[in-house]
Nucleic acid binder design. Structure first.
Length: 540
RNA sequence: GGCCUCUUGGUCAAGCGGCUAAGACGCCGCCCUCUCACGGCGGAAUCAGGAGUUCGAUUCUCCUAGAGGCUACCA
């Protein structure tokens, strides 16, 4: 009895051979610089910014090289699988408009020739290769008790710390046919483990596109390739799928560097060609002590991509921010090409920054301000309404109730200006920003008497201005008569001779109308509010 | 415990053996006769520490420290 018999014993249903599988996955027809990349998330119920970051890198590599981008859903961990999770994944991807060349639709239709693009539908394929490895003596059935969950693992690890042996050979690695049969007859379930050929003292060199040449201890562990429920863990699925699907470059987080030696040994055992790895840094945040820590879904709302949607950041702002983290050349490129779409920016995988970026909301806000500054008032209005329809329905009704008015609000200090205002970084903040448009503000004057004097005088001769210049002339006249300086130079030379300068006079009007000391050009606001409302606000 | 990765101003960073060590965000000051914003000008602020290689190290090597990752029938 040999390995072939053991293989047939444990995989009686598997009749296909790897060759037959390969026939279903013909080699892709590619030019030499075209990349085939993939996004391979496991559906967890949210899209994490770190995963999205990888997706976005892959997206750019594929698009910039005229290559192929596909989506593969890695739903092999049934314990973590959540209902609706896949829907969430597709929803978020769709919102950001990341389009894939190949994927499976939500209702289960495969688009592309290399499917199924969902791992839970590929179990038959994995088994064929697992059986082959068993036949060749490169893998074996293991009947040991499972380790499950983090706590098990921690305990296991502690017990291992005492041993100096680098090998982790499994007790079941040399079971005879009879022993396997006996376990089976007892009704025991089994997993399939890879049988490492290493002894624990070998070293291995491998290449990472971002980090360069790496060296590490070679794998010396009989790791699982098929769990007892018949599904493969990450390593095995990765080897099979990325080979069959013709991936040319694997973008994944740097937490996988440590397991790369195991993956390489697996590829070799399967007779597969190695695929280029591109281990990108994880995204971090700074904690209170100033240390880095992985951005986490528990404490950092911005780790969830929905954060940006809910707060109304334009997609392009998020993309530009991500690009900024991917490559420091982007910022310079952007400066030199202020009007081009970010999609025009090309980068090579080896140019991806090797150091862990820290998520910086302030920086994102700055980028977002610049993106929003390129919008016309009308565009901004439309985006605002679209956002509000989903996240602030009452506001959406108000905005839609007077399209002309609110388009004007959005146009203030924007349309017809070579250098528009840059103080809006998301749609959510706009309601607060323009609160004085929606309702009369509370006005707090530091010098109420003086303010009233000026406002009364201004109101007395008030007529709706037709231009900014006209408006300013009116204010100057009224203020001048009351003893305000209309010439700032004169005022600076001798401030005591005046009640204040024209800026002071404007401040009173501004506070009366907006409740704020800062606002867009007052003339525009008066124009939007209309004569009646303006008069009301001027009388205090 | 072992293995691996990373370390330039507050943050993001350029640099790839020879520089007064770019630039961006943030901060501060000045200018721009309504504020804010925009814009312009200017300012403070950085090579984790220690050895070594070299005529010369931010750059190469080693050590130390710090941060992070992996060490699951999770990805």
């Amino acid at each position: 009895m040999n390995n072939k018999d053991i293989a047939d014993l444990i995989f009686p249903d598997v009749t296909l051979t790897p060759e037959e599988i390969f026939k279903r996955y013909p080699k892709r027809n590619l030019q030499k610089d075209q990349y085939v990349t993939r996004f391979a998330p496991s559906p967890t119920g949210l899209v994490h910014i770190g995963n999205f970051f990888q997706a976005f890198i892959s997206y750019n590599l594929a698009r910039n090289s005229n290559g192929v981008l596909f989506l593969r859903v890695e739903d092999t961990d049934r314990k973590r699988e959540k209902a609706e999770a896949k829907k969430v994944l597709y929803d978020v991807l769709g919102r950001f408009g990341l389009d894939f060349d190949e994927y499976q639709t939500l209702d289960g239709k495969d688009i592309g020739d290399y499917g199924p693009y969902v791992q839970s539908q590929r179990n038959d394929i994995y088994k064929v290769f697992a059986k082959k490895l068993v036949e060749e003596g490169k893998a074996f059935p293991c009947f040991c008790k499972k380790t499950e969950g983090k706590e098990d693992v921690l305990k296991l690890r502690e017990s291992k710390f005492d041993e100096n042996d680098e090998r982790e050979y499994d007790p079941c690695r040399d079971l005879t046919y009879e022993e396997v049969k006996k376990h089976l007859d007892n009704g025991e379930t089994f997993a399939i483990r890879f049988k490492t050929k290493n002894k624990g003292d070998e070293r291995i060199k491998f290449k990472d596109i971002i980090k360069g040449e790496l060296e590490a201890k070679a794998n010396a562990k009989d790791f699982i390739i098929l769990k007892s429920d018949g599904t493969p863990p990450y390593a095995f699925a990765h080897a099979i799928d990325d080979t069959l699907m013709g991936t040319t470059i694997v973008v994944r987080g740097e937490e996988y560097i440590a397991s790369a030696p195991a993956h390489i040994e697996l590829f070799e055992a399967l007779g597969f060609k190695l695929i280029d790895y591109c281990h990108n840094p994880l995204i971090y945040k700074l904690n209170e002590q100033g240390n880095r820590r992985k951005i986490s879904k528990r404490y950092d709302p911005e780790s969830n991509m929905m954060f940006f949607i809910e707060n109304g950041y334009p997609n392009d702002a998020v993309f530009e921010y991500l690009l900024n983290m991917i490559s420091s050349h982007f910022e310079i490129w952007r400066k030199n090409n202020p009007t081009l779409n970010w999609r025009e920016f090309k980068f090579k995988p080896n140019e991806i920054t090797a150091v862990t970026p820290i998520f910086d909301l302030v920086k994102l806000n700055d980028i977002s301000k610049n993106v929003i500054a390129t919008y016309s008032g009308e565009q901004l209005y439309n985006n605002w309404v679209k956002w509000a329809e989903e996240f602030d329905a009452p506001l959406a009704e108000v905005l839609k109730g007077d399209r002309e008015k609110y388009t004007k609000v959005c146009s203030m200090d924007r349309d017809g200006r070579p250098k528009p205002r840059k103080d809006i970084y998301n749609y959510k903040m706009m309601k607060d920003k323009f609160h004085y448009i929606f309702e009369r503000p509370v006005s707090n004057f530091e010098e109420k008497e003086k303010a009233k004097e000026l406002l009364d005088a201004y109101l007395q001769n008030f007529k709706m201005p037709t231009s900014n210049e006209e408006w300013f002339e009116d204010v100057k006249q009224v203020a001048g008569k009351l003893g305000y300086a209309t010439d700032n130079k004169l005022y600076k030379e001798n401030p005591d001779a005046f009640k204040g300068n024209i800026a002071k006079a404007c401040e009173f009007i501004r506070i009366a109308i907006t409740g704020e000391k800062d606002s867009p050009t007052l003339f525009n606001i008066i124009e939007i509010l209309g004569e009646e409302e303006t008069r009301k606000r001027l009388s205090i």
